[in-house]
Computed example of a mutant assay.
Amino acid sequence: MKIVGCVAVLTGAGSGIGRELALALARSGCGLALVDINAVQLAETAEQARALGVRVSEHPMDVADRAAIAVLPERVLAEHGQVDLLINNAGVALGGTFEQVSVENFDWLMAINFDAVVCMTRAFLPLLKQRPAARIVNLSSLFGLITPAGQTAYCASKFAVRGFSNALRLELVGSPVGVTVVHPGGIATAIASSARVPAGVNDAELQARLKRTEKLLRMPPARAADIILRGIERDRVRVIVGNDALILSWLERLLPVNYWRLLPGLAGKG
């Protein structure tokens, strides 16, 4: 896919992988319709992208708001006149086991990590089909490939993104729209430190778990963004980001039921 001259709608653009993806796309000559719930961070990303010489529009909104998504295509068209890329990057995390997580928090995560992907796709697919070549890029996770203990909600959402993306790709065969699903491993973003924590979770245990998690978040977001952009340009259907994700994806393929025996930490046993 030729990025120059395209227009991308990118959610979660205010920080982390989203910000770096926005800048990587801008350097490649791609116009941007940027979406994030944090208007201040969104404006910072937009300013940096405009400095690279592309047209940028800002759309501060909650991607869990279906009414806001419904009117977004019209607003993007008014600013840019076309949409070639939809990148569903926005995501949140939630600490605690299934029994610790409330119904409300579980639903909150699913609304952002999965329902928003479906709603954004439904809203923008008609516009994407009008282009000679277009692509939907959905951010899953390493935890859309493997299932560590203490991540029931997050894994449920990211496996759902993976399944939705793979089935949608087959349905769109013969159309100008391709689908890419991305599985990042340990990327050095703030998703772990900003995760919601259920009431009653032991603080000492939480801090110990957070320290272990943050040690695994090593790849700079800019590097992750470059890998994702290269996958988009090459029309890759799946992009695995990071050696950790690559190794664990192969381990899961070789031992789909028993891989956790080699990784007791993933099973909550260390």
Rank of each mutant, 00 (worst) to 15 (best):
M219R: 02
A224K: 00
L210C: 08
E44F: 08
S15P: 02
A24G: 03
I136F: 07
G16E: 00
V201E: 05
Y259M: 11
I227K: 09
G31M: 08
D226A: 10
S140Q: 08
E79L: 05
T189A: 10
I232H: 01
V181S: 00
R212K: 15
A49N: 06
T97F: 10
R209V: 07
G185Q: 00
V35F: 08
L94F: 04
D62R: 01
R169L: 15
A222S: 14
A78C: 02
N113I: 10
P221F: 09
K129Q: 15
N105H: 06
A149K: 12
K269N: 10
T11H: 12
V63I: 11
M61R: 04
S193L: 09
Q207L: 14
L251I: 13
K2M: 07
A133R: 03
S194W: 12
L248C: 05
A192W: 11
A222W: 07
E252L: 12
I227H: 01
L86V: 06
F114Q: 00
A195G: 12
K269W: 12
G96L: 07
I17K: 00
T152M: 14
N89I: 12
F164W: 03
P126E: 04
V241D: 02
R75H: 05
L127Y: 06
G14V: 09
N258D: 12
N105T: 07
G91F: 14
G200D: 08
A123E: 02
V237N: 14
V257D: 15
S28I: 02
V179R: 00
K211V: 13
T189R: 04
